[in-house]
């Protein structure tokens, strides 16, 4: 088996051990813990009052915008990682200018997108309206 293969066998083993550990302790606890559930115990906590309605309601779309910006940036960054890895070896081979230009172009394009998002106001958590000028 290669070292490459071994490392991914380890990942699978670690992840399954994590799941197994949680499952085993919960199973063990099943024989130890009491199970005297009642309607009151099973109601959700809402400051001691009877809960009103579900919690599955519409929430603020700014969470969605942040998630969207994150996805775009994260994909771009994961594309940058392989280029960053070979950057120093390219400098050693004497292609410093080319490597620098390539990586800098990529990052500047990313930065332009970032500036666009900023100017558009999508990074402001508290949205400002025309009528509430502070």
């Amino acid at each position: 088996m290669t070292e490459y293969g071994f490392s991914f066998v380890s990942v699978i083993v670690f992840l399954s051990l994590a799941a197994l550990f949680v499952f085993a302790v919960l199973l063990l606890g099943r024989f130890l813990r009491p199970s005297r559930s009642s309607q009151e115990k099973r109601s959700v906590y809402e400051c001691g009052e009877r809960p009103i309605g579900d919690a599955w309601f519409n929430f603020n779309p700014r969470f969605y915008i942040i998630a969207l910006i994150f996805v775009i940036f994260d994909v771009e960054i994961s594309f940058t990682f392989p280029v960053a890895k070979v950057f120093s070896s390219w400098i050693k081979q004497g292609h410093a200018g080319l490597a620098y230009a390539e990586l800098a172009t990529f990052i500047v394009i990313l930065l332009l997108g970032f500036i666009y998002v900023w100017k558009k106001g999508d990074l402001d958590w508290l949205k400002k309206f025309d009528h509430d000028v502070n």
């Binding site: 959700v44 906590y45 809402e46 809960p51 579900d54 919690a55 599955w56 929430f59 969470f63 942040i66 998630a67 994150f70 940036f73 994260d74 960054i77």
Partner: peptide
């Protein structure tokens, strides 16, 4: 959890962790 507190906490956490990952 279908609890309002959990919902707020989960959403905030998602926004926070996702943002700081960049």
């Amino acid at each position: 959890s279908n609890s309002k507190w959990s919902m707020f906490g989960g959403l905030r956490s998602a926004a926070q962790i996702v943002s700081y990952e960049i």
